[in-house]
Design a protein around this nucleic acid. Structure first.
Lengths: 227, 227
DNA sequence: AGAACCAGTGTTGTGCACATCACCACGGCA
DNA sequence: TGCCGTGGTGATGTGCACAACACTGGTTCT
């Protein structure tokens, strides 16, 4: 017998659903989110839904303006530079601060992720890529035992997740090339984990994150974008 | 002519007031916060007040339980070890990531803080100490231009602020000694800033934070505490 | 005697109606 | 024609009543 979902469960569920929709660009930046429509969709009233929107606002994913509406925030590569810089440092910290040896289940999950990455290179797809990227990020976070660090890293990740997918849709990055690079990244980290070198794994992660950001910046600067 | 306070202003104000009350131990850990009583005190209804409590909950300062109440969370030195470890690293990062040279106003503020610290050593008082500590922390944060880092550092600071005052009330740390150490810390950092060595300033900060945590741990472990 | 049950009371969570605010389109006026 | 004022419309913010829930004390059955 399963318990009926508590208020906290419903809140978490709504929060995750809306957060994923924003990160996956189901709601493009600038989209207005109707409280009433969302409340109707999830079968609740505006009150609990507004709590979720409030949390999304503190996370920087939406912004509410009295009398106008709540809108999905936009992300610019320029204003995310500081966030990326911080994410770089946190990625390395995750390897230094209370590293957590992966158990068998986690190693199996990494191998599954590796398989999914290989499948992705055969059939590149922006949405699948982003999903896989998020799952991989969460799995890698489990390698650190520092809970506050996990929490903060996830927060920052969510804040920057959209810029990549936005660049894909604007054809500012090459999806096939990115998929190939990502596949190699996973395999490299898997190799580091296999021999127990957690610090190396975090350094690889940091390096790839840095390069990914550089490619994003380069794609935004030159004129290769086709509208 | 001043504008009437907007909804966001009211929210920020309530949030700050309640947060400070919790950090200053006006509300001791375990205290139940009555939504109705607080709403009456601030002249609003429960609805906007609940938004503030919700944010305090995501910040880890209170915890709401359906049908029971919302309680001020307790803090234990043990479970804060990871948070302190992270704060150490962030303190150093603040000096490395986009350091911001202090303008004349900020330097003046630091000198004011130094004066306040000297006055504190003459008349030690837990509440004054904590207030000064918080003001100093916020001023020091303005030395980094990395906004996400500032936001996160402040979050973590708020989460750990209470453990110190709790130790003072339990006589596990010597207030006079702590005041003297804190005065020296401010003067050291002021000296580093005066010659433009921001990295040194962050290292001093990191060292003092580390030592402060060690003293807290030592005070909690041995049997010198008088109830 | 002990345990299970059951109202009673007080709390947080939810639904709903209304207040407040911002935008827009229309119209009066110089 | 251009501009200011003004009401209409639809959004978020607020107040209030009720639902859902947890705890407590007493009561009843075994």
């Amino acid at each position: 017998m399963t318990h009926p979902p508590s208020a906290r469960d419903r809140f978490e569920r709504l929060h995750t659903v809306l957060r994923d929709r924003i990160c996956l660009l189901d709601y493009a930046p600038g989209t207005r989110l109707s409280e009433e429509a969302l409340a109707a969709e999830f079968g609740v009233s505006r009150t609990p839904l507004r709590r979720v929107l409030g949390r999304l606002e503190t996370e920087g994913l939406v912004q509410s303006v009295h009398g106008v509406g709540t809108f999905v925030t936009d992300v610019e590569i320029g204003e995310l530079a500081q966030t990326y810089q911080l994410r770089l440092e946190l990625a390395e910290l995750a390897g230094r601060l209370s590293p957590q040896p992966p158990d068998a289940a986690l190693m199996a999950e990494f191998r599954t992720l590796s398989d999914r990455a290989r499948a992705l290179t055969d059939a590149p797809d922006p949405r699948t890529f982003t999903q896989l990227n998020m799952d991989f990020f969460l799995a890698r976070l489990r390698l650190t035992g520092n809970e506050p660090l996990r929490e903060i890293a996830e927060r920052l990740y969510v804040r920057t997740a959209r810029i990549w997918m936005k660049s894909v849709f604007a054809s500012r990055v090459d999806l096939r090339e990115e998929s190939e690079i990502f596949r190699r990244e996973i395999e490299d980290i898997l190799a580091a984990l296999a021999i127990g070198d957690f610090h190396a794994a975090s350094l690889i992660q940091r390096a790839h994150l840095s390069m990914s950001f550089e490619r994003l910046k380069a794609g935004g600067r030159d004129g290769t974008a086709h509208p």
